[in-house]
Amino acid sequence: MAEDVKNIAVEEKEATIAFGAKERKLITDPLHLNNPLTVQVLGICSAMAVTSQVYPSLIMAVAVVFVTAFSSLIISLLRNSVPSSIRMIVQLLVIAALVQVVSLVLGAFAYSAYESLAVFIGLIITNCIVMGRLEAFAMANRPWQSFLDGVGNGLGYGFILVAMAVIRELFGKGTIMGLEILNPIFGLFGATYTPNNLMVLPAASLFVIGLMIWVQRGLDDRLVDIS
């Protein structure tokens, strides 16, 4: 996990100039220490049902990165001109408009994915991470920092999503992105892989994320829930 974090950070660093240690932290923090799914536990709702296969999870991850990044940017630009009494509605409208854009783009370019994801793409609106980051970060910070914070949280979310999908598809079907993985390996020893049907059930996503939380908190004492 640590290597992934570094790789992403390095790529981002090369791509942009205004990118000091503080900005880098905005991207790397949500990947591990402040991960939206396993630490903040936000945005579970719209994620669970898509993780039984890797391909829809990748699409969902990209869509969420796009929405968190640009909603943070827009709200940060607007933050001084929006009265606080109507800020919720403004945030929701910005998010809803962006999600609508994602949904139209998907419908045009990846129709099969759009059909199976339709309801869940719409649910990005009520994804608590998006609203959470707007309230907690974008309302009080400059546009560039807010944009990075949005990208970081979107990536942290997408990373866990794809990792869950890999585990579930690999053991549930023996494939990754539809490619046979486990059967050829088992074939070397003259055996065949029997898919574990539990992993295809929706409930398995909860077991997988529960175990991931267990592993992550077991490795890092700072994250253990003391209460």
Binding site: A204, L206, F207, I209, G210, I213, W214, R217, D225, S227
Partner: peptide, 23 residues
């Protein structure tokens, strides 16, 4: 409950078990 699983971790797993019961 094991320390690292306390709180949300165990809540997730319980919800999964309830989901299977509801199935």
């Amino acid at each position: 409950v094991p320390p690292a699983l306390r709180g949300l971790g165990i809540a997730f797993i319980l919800t999964g078990l309830m989901g299977i019961a509801f199935m």
